[in-house]
Nucleic acid binder design. Structure first.
Length: 734
DNA sequence: AATCTTAGAGTTTTT
DNA sequence: CTCTAAGATT
């Protein structure tokens, strides 16, 4: 028997070997979901049930797709090529390029980012004289996205699905938006799914060809699918009899936390009805967490109604461990100190920082912890946040490349026409738009025409002419010099890099570095078009997870990850569960918040520390907070409560905390001794030390001068932020 | 056309 | 408090 099967437990093995017919695998947190999915994939190939090109494997994230590809290759012992393996969006983009004409598009259509989408919609609303004060474009955009999430093209939006917007004009504006997208040969993210579903619905021959191609379908994170993704899967899976419907969906209803993005938990709850004769396999042996952690998580999630039902049990023999700690604190500052202190304690015991995480409900909560960790000199990284390809300088550079690749890309042209400043203001751009609309031509064409006819003043004319000539030159150089060289030339000659070189703000240097990184990344692709597609679909974060740092992120960002020690701060009514969620979605949202709490707890392997503060600083003012109802829902047997009186302490009792800002200095003393005894020996000697007096630059604090140095910790007097203690790797010589 | 000032909003965001 | 987007000013 094949070696890869023997490494599975019986339930996992059932999930892998039930190859024919619909199968739903309910995989609890830490039960080996990815292993099952990849082994099943490999099993289908190894047993010759299908060729690699006959399996469709869908994930939500590029990360998951990449991991699956790697693990399948590892089992097969060779690179997994020619697979239809990727995210919903990437696979649909591939299909849409094949059948672009059926959607009224050219095969080289552009995929717009949210920025471009909003600008396009705003333009339409302004042109239609709609009061954008009364009717925010943002609201219409979310309505359009919801429609797209449901697979509703403008003509499919029924009155029941309509929204109250600009006196019943929502549908009309949506239709116009779609028309404009076609005009500029572009699609947005929602279109990738919706247009493909529309093609499959209206072209039976196309659907039939995919039915012949895909013999097996594998879906990851099924609980997060929205309606249009569900429709896409169902269309592809429902092959005409006698062909079996070999669709295997893996998911966990208890980890459905994206309903606000259109995910329908109903999809997973309804699976057995959608696919009659379906087999359901439950993976319940958890190999990740200790018994108390699993017990606490199970007790909490049991409060939810409408679950598929599933109980995690420890899959390891050594599952005993510390109880989940619930710590009550006076205020949010004390909470940050508590977390910081425990991180240092762990560090002293030899725990790795990369095995610790602070998971928060909302992004703004990370700040308090960042500041505390900076003061303590503990290295950290914030996961999520702004992504590389979302930064302004990268988007600008991308816009230049998009115009180079597709001159008809009006949105990209508009973005860079006056970046850097060329004296091309509102008047010129408005004239360009008017001409473009009148002639039904792209902006670039209209711009050329304006120069030829002289319908423009001398100064802007010269500037515009230089830019257009530039594009002609760069485009012409492309086949000769290659896209990497041309990109560098373009950024120089357009004056774009100069713009940042002359910028005196503290971020400018980083932006120039990012541009260099962009040019490097382009080199990894054969063509410019290939690179642009990659960027639109694979917005990877350029973080090295290897680094020995504490991770700070939202609970949403933490799904799928695991750590030895997990801190879950801010369990207070209003914050978690979040008030806005409760107001908008009532009981349903409360259950989703609870699932989020469940996701948080189950990230922990060994230690889970939950906390709440009685007073919290928000938007500059203090307000008191009631402990989260979720704290009461944790089963007492698995929980140890600490400082319970803390939440009710009076000011007198909490007085010491007002001075405890000094404590770390005292507390650090013994730690230095300990560090000297063995911890330092493990760390490689540092080479490029930063001397006292050196002027340095820090991402968060800007410029400053080093006033003292101790090991890798520097005391820096920052020009703006004042005196701070930072880790030397966080600053660079200025 | 570029710069300064003020008003308003601040949950989560796999693509 | 702090950031962004718009309107007002030079």
């Amino acid at each position: 028997m094949s070696d890869y099967l023997t490494r599975l437990n019986p339930e996992q093995r059932a999930a892998v070997e039930t190859v024919d017919g619909p199968l739903l695998v309910l995989a609890g947190a830490g039960t080996g979901k990815t292993r099952v999915l990849t082994t099943r994939f490999a099993h289908i190939l190894m047993t010759r049930r299908a060729w690699p090109s006959q399996v469709l494997a869908v994930t939500f994230t590029n990360k998951a797709a990449k991991e699956m590809r790697e693990r399948v290759s590892a089992i097969l012992g060779q690179p997994a090529e020619g697979l239809w393996l990727g995210t919903f969006h990437a696979l649909c983009a591939r299909m849409l390029r094949r059948h672009a004409a059926l959607a009224g598009l050219e095969h080289n259509f552009t995929i717009l980012d949210t920025d471009d989408q909003m600008r396009l919609l705003k333009q339409i609303m302004v042109a239609e004289n709609i009061d954008t004060k009364r009717w925010p474009p943002q609201a219409l955009m979310s309505a359009i996205q919801r429609w797209k999430d449901k697979g509703l093209t403008p003509d499919r939006v029924t009155t029941a699905e309509d929204v109250d917007f600009a006196n019943g004009r929502a549908r009309d504006l949506y239709a116009q938006y779609q028309r404009r997208l076609k005009d500029v040969n572009a699609v947005d993210f929602g279109d990738l799914l919706m247009l493909v579903v529309e093609i499959l619905r209206t072209n039976p021959d196309v659907l039939a060809s995919y039915h012949r191609t895909f013999r097996y379908i594998l879906v990851d994170e099924y609980q997060d699918t929205n309606t249009v993704q569900y429709l896409w899967l169902r269309l592809l899976a429902q092959r005409p009899a006698p062909e079996p419907q070999n669709i295997c969906c893996v998911g966990d209803d208890d980890q459905s936390i994206y309903s606000w993005r259109g995910a329908e938990i109903e999809n997973i709850l309804r699976f057995e009805r959608d696919f009659p004769g379906a087999t359901v396999v439950r993976l319940e042996s958890n190999y990740r967490s200790t018994r108390p952690i699993l017990g606490a998580a199970a007790g909490l999630i049991a409060q939810n109604n409408g679950r598929m039902g599933k109980t995690l049990r420890p899959g390891r023999n050594d599952a005993d461990g510390d109880k989940v700690r619930v710590v009550s604190l006076w205020d949010s500052e004390e909470e940050a100190r508590m977390v910081g202190d425990r991180i240092e304690q762990g560090q002293r015991r030899g725990d790795r920082l990369s095995e610790m995480a602070i998971l928060v409900r909302a992004g703004f909560q990370t700040r308090a912890f960042e500041e505390r960790l900076i003061t303590l000199g503990v290295p950290y990284r914030v996961v999520g946040g702004q992504k590389f390809y979302e930064r302004a300088e990268i988007r600008d550079a991308m816009a230049y490349l998009r115009v180079l690749n597709q001159p008809a890309d009006d949105l990209a042209f508009e973005r860079i026409v006056n970046t850097p400043k060329r004296g091309l203001g509102e008047t010129t751009i408005r004239a360009m738009h008017a001409l473009a609309r009148q002639e039904g031509k792209p902006l670039v064409v209209a711009a050329w025409r304006m120069i030829e006819t002289g319908a423009i003043r001398a100064k802007p004319k010269a500037a515009l002419h230089e830019l257009l000539e530039g594009f002609a030159r760069w485009r012409e150089a492309l086949p000769r010099e290659g896209h990497v060289v041309v990109t560098a030339t373009l950024l120089d000659e357009s004056g774009y890099t100069d713009m940042w070189k002359q910028d005196k703000s503290p971020e400018a240097a980083g932006r120039l570095d990012n541009l260099k990184e962009l040019i490097r990344a382009i080199g990894e692709f054969d063509t410019l078009a290939g690179f642009l597609e990659h960027v639109a679909l694979v917005m990877e974060n350029d973080e090295n997870a290897e680094a020995e740092r504490v991770s700070l992120m939202t609970l949403h960002a933490a799904k799928g990850l695991e750590f030895d020690t997990v801190f879950l701060p801010g369990w207070e009514e209003g914050l978690f569960p979040n008030q806005r969620a409760l107001d908008e979605g009532g009981e349903k949202s409360l259950e989703e918040e609870r699932r989020l709490a469940y996701v948080g707890i189950t990230r922990a392997r060994k230690h889970c520390i939950i906390s709440h503060a009685a007073n919290r600083q928000m938007y500059g003012t203090w307000s008191s907070a009631v402990p989260s109802r979720f704290l009461d829902e944790l089963p007492e047997a698995h929980v140890e409560r600490e400082g319970g009186a803390g939440a009710h302490r009076n000011r007198m009792a909490s007085a010491p905390s007002a001075f405890s800002g000094q404590f770390p200095l005292v507390a650090r003393k013994p730690r230095v001794i300990e560090a000297g005894s063995w911890e330092v020996a493990e760390r490689p000697a540092r080479t490029a030390a930063i001397p006292v007096g050196q002027r340095v630059f820090h991402q968060k604090f800007g410029y400053g001068r080093v006033v003292a140095a101790e090991d890798n910790k520097l005391d820096v007097e920052f020009e703006k932020a004042g005196r701070k203690r930072v880790i030397d790797t966080f600053v660079e010589k200025a």
